[in-house]
């Protein structure tokens, strides 16, 4: 596994990284609470333990020119790209005012103005789409890096193979991050793939590939930044495997009793948020007390956003009956 000593990340930027990770952490924690209270429905998919990946990777992009295709566990990236808490809560809780009008939820959010294009539940399906987004700009002579994600489970879907090969052939500025969080729902790595590292596959596509510690936000950031620079130089796509642990079930209905307790304990010691607070504290960048202050402030904003969202009504029922097409066709009931 590639390890790299991080140097030269300015203190202000390190505090920003922590802030985004705390936002992701508190958002997920809030969603778990809302689910238990019966206020959030559908699938609640947390990224607890994976915050360093979504935040570190998205921060490596240029938000004014690149584009993000996050998965359902990449809320951190939404924050990095400027999504407001209010809009995310309206979307997750399916309330009036959600940009998706209540048609979809569970992190499948798109906000073209912010250069965010969401996901569908069919894993791997958005990877060729992300490649095509960059291809369109390549035709115009513009390099737009598309960053997208897949899990260790989703990486076994056929469309992932097609998309990576296609991106490599056309040297597209695509970065695929495989978040290897050890389990695909209940299925462990050992029943998903037989290669040593998922990034080994990069060689077969003729692209750059690397496996890194996904719990260290600065390693993630540095590695992604290198991939972004490679893409900008016209050197094509990159495959980055980030090794982490899914600290909750597949979604909140799942008690994940199939995961050995010791494994969770082992990974809990490597918690990306807590470890980063310790590191910033030790480095004199931000004290733990200041970090807790930051967390309290975020939590307060979170609670306000939740209250505002829950005060909103459900979307009007008629929303379900319109916009199937951009140009209406007289759809039937």
């Amino acid at each position: 596994m590639a390890r790299k000593k991080t140097v030269g990340i300015p203190a202000e930027f390190r505090r920003e990284m922590l802030r985004y990770m705390l936002m992701a952490r508190e958002f997920d924690t809030a969603m778990l609470r809302l689910y238990r209270q019966g206020k959030a429905f559908g699938g609640v998919y947390s990224q607890l333990g994976n915050e360093a990946v979504s935040v570190g990777s998205a921060l490596a992009l240029d938000r004014t020119r690149d584009v993000l295709f996050p998965m359902h566990r990449n809320i951190g990236g939404h924050f990095v790209f400027g999504q407001t808490l209010d809009q995310l809560m309206l979307n997750h809780l399916a309330r009036e005012g959600s940009q998706m009008r209540g048609t979809d939820g569970t992190g499948h959010y798109a906000d073209p103005a912010l250069r965010i294009y969401g996901n569908v539940s069919h894993l791997g399906a958005m990877i060729p789409v992300a490649a095509g987004f960059s291809m369109a700009d390549a035709m115009r002579g513009i390099t737009t890096v598309s960053m997208t994600y897949i899990g260790d489970g989703g990486a076994q879907v056929g469309e992932v193979h097609e998309a990576l090969n296609f991106a490599a052939v056309h040297k597209l500025p695509l970065i695929l991050i495989i978040e290897n969080n050890q389990y695909a729902y209940s299925t462990p790595n050992s029943l998903e793939f037989a290669c040593e590292r998922l990034s080994d596959r990069a060689l077969g596509y003729g692209m750059h590939g690397v496996t890194i510690d996904g719990t260290d936000v600065e390693i993630v950031y540095d590695t992604c930044l290198e991939a972004v620079q490679r893409a900008r130089r016209g050197e094509g796509p990159s495959l980055i495997e980030t090794v982490t642990m899914r600290m909750r079930g597949h979604a909140e209905h799942d008690d994940f009793s199939y995961v050995p307790k010791e494994l969770l304990e082992e990974w809990a010691a490597k918690d990306p948020v807590e470890r980063y607070i310790d590191r910033l504290d030790a480095g004199g960048v931000l004290s733990r007390a200041q970090a807790e202050e930051m967390r309290t402030e975020i939590l307060a904003q979170m609670i306000e956003a939740i209250d505002r969202a829950l005060d909103r009504p459900w979307p009007a029922a008629e929303e379900g009956l319109r916009n199937v097409f951009m140009t209406p066709t007289g759809e039937q009931r």
Partner: peptide
């Protein structure tokens, strides 16, 4: 394009979004 109907259609969707 390579023989990859999913990538061909998928990349076209991405280009259309853009």
């Amino acid at each position: 394009a390579p023989i990859s109907e999913a990538a061909i259609i998928g990349a076209s969707i991405g280009a259309a979004l853009n």
